[in-house]
Design a protein around this nucleic acid. Structure first.
Lengths: 161, 161
DNA sequence: AACAAATCGTTGACATTTTCAACTATCCAT
DNA sequence: ATGGATAGTTGAAAATGTCAACGATTTGTT
């Protein structure tokens, strides 16, 4: 507990091994920043009995897009069976409801309830703060740039926002 | 199979749900790009009987930094017990060797063998190609920028390279 | 020097997550 | 109408993650 920790820098103490070439590997960088972020995110969401997974389901349910479970599975890169469990729990808590798809009765659309919307509103703020903490090392402009580049890498030019 | 896919764009077909606000969430973006990359990475590394995990161990072992298992655990955000299993397997295959730490005999440093170096050399090329595929949607300059921003978010200004 | 507390690798138990194959109900194309 | 695909669900199996304990060693304190 010497004086070294002067700023509010959240960035990790620079590790001896950063010098290794793996620090140039995209997969590693993504995994590591994601790991760091997950800890903060889950900690922030725990207050609302949510985890990253259930939080993302809730966001989609509240988007107004009336997504089906299959669509959520594809979009979140999760197995459909995992969606079942996540939606089950959120539904049991009264945060979302399932409804049969209007064009396709096999499908079930998931929609947030009013209560779900309320919870999400608060949880979002907490998640925002967690994200800000992860991006503590970057000035605002570069944070925005990072996110833009990630979106572009995923979906190319035809981007929202 | 209409005409739409004109370029060599690897980027996913833009999903209906990109419009949801979760597409602005850093954690989600990291997870999703990481997931997409992992598939390609592991596919590329399978040829050498490596996965992302063992690959990263091998890189560190070959770095010349003589990392201990503990250092690797910290740096890779893995539990020390997982390192044991990974190093066990690589050692069994003759790609790395364990040696007692010189200052600290509790610790064990892990070093790549000549054979390990050879394998790594080839595996790296495959991983490079996989990474290029993931970044297909981004021009070279933006790819470099993305990686720089990730490093900066992780370790702040005191960066290598 | 002697002791206590902390650390490193390892093991094994336990929980969580992932992956996959079935099954029913429904849709779609012919 | 029939056959083949697809949505959701269930449950089992495999892989991963988490954690507490232990012997061997180091470090700090007296």
């Amino acid at each position: 507990m010497t004086i070294e920790t002067q700023g509010s820098q959240r960035t990790e103490p620079v590790h001896k091994l950063v010098a290794a070439s793996i620090s140039q590997d995209l997969g590693f960088l993504l995994a590591k920043l994601h790991a760091a972020g997950s800890v903060l995110n889950n900690r922030a969401l725990a207050e609302f009995d949510l985890k990253e997974r259930s939080y993302s389901i809730l966001i989609l349910a509240n988007s107004g897009l009336e997504p089906t479970q299959r669509e959520m599975a594809d979009f979140l890169s999760l197995d459909p069976s995992q969606i079942v469990a996540l939606v089950d729990e959120l539904e049991k808590r009264g945060l979302v409801v399932r409804a049969p798809g209007k064009q396709d009765r096999r499908a079930k659309t998931v929609t947030a309830t009013a209560k779900g919307g309320k919870v999400l509103e608060q949880a979002s703020e907490a998640a925002q703060r967690a994200e800000a903490e992860v991006l503590d090392g970057l000035p605002a402009e570069e944070s925005a740039q990072l996110k833009t580049l990630l979106r572009k890498a995923l979906w190319g030019a035809g981007l929202p926002g």
